[in-house]
């Protein structure tokens, strides 16, 4: 499935509806829909908020596929080069006073996904994410 998304934060509700239909249609459990939509929120929001420096309207692509085991997400945008995997993980063991407020988004994506890959090809950012549909990862 291909979804064209504009760089407008209001797009999230349309994405939620479309992904809900995709999950129901493919028999994906509700719990996994939650993880998929959370991952999409984090990565799509990043592109909407940071990929384009001008005030113009831009469009980027979200591909969603499912096979026997996994849901594969691919996000392709022609915004400025940004590799989210280079972002440092937050220190999740620090005290509440010392705990930093940012940096959680991509960390959550990495925790929920089996695979996260980034590449810059032909002046486009390509982010590929694989989420297991049935097997729970780790001790979650």
């Amino acid at each position: 499935m291909l979804l064209k998304i504009k760089n407008n934060i209001e797009e999230m509700s349309r994405i939620c509806d479309t992904v809900r239909e995709f999950c129901v249609g493919n028999g994906i459990p509700d719990e996994r829909y939650h993880d998929i939509i959370l991952v999409l929120d984090e990565v799509v929001t990043n592109v909407i908020n940071y990929a384009y420096q001008d005030e113009e309207e831009h469009e980027f692509s979200l591909y969603l596929d499912k096979d026997d085991q996994n849901v594969s997400i691919k996000l392709i945008d022609n915004g400025m080069a940004f590799n989210p995997l280079e972002q440092e993980d937050p220190d999740i063991c620090s005290s509440i006073e010392e705990r930093q407020i940012g940096g959680l988004g991509i960390f959550i994506v990495k925790q929920l996904a089996e695979v996260v890959e980034y590449s810059r090809i032909d002046e486009q950012n390509q982010l590929s994410i694989v989420i297991a549909v049935y097997d729970k990862k780790g001790e979650r």
Binding site: L38, I92, C93, S94, R99, L104, I108
Partner: peptide, 11 residues
């Protein structure tokens, strides 16, 4: 589970 993976259950 999201709070836990973020370490928020400890703070």
């Amino acid at each position: 589970s999201i709070f836990k993976m973020s370490g928020f259950d400890k703070i």
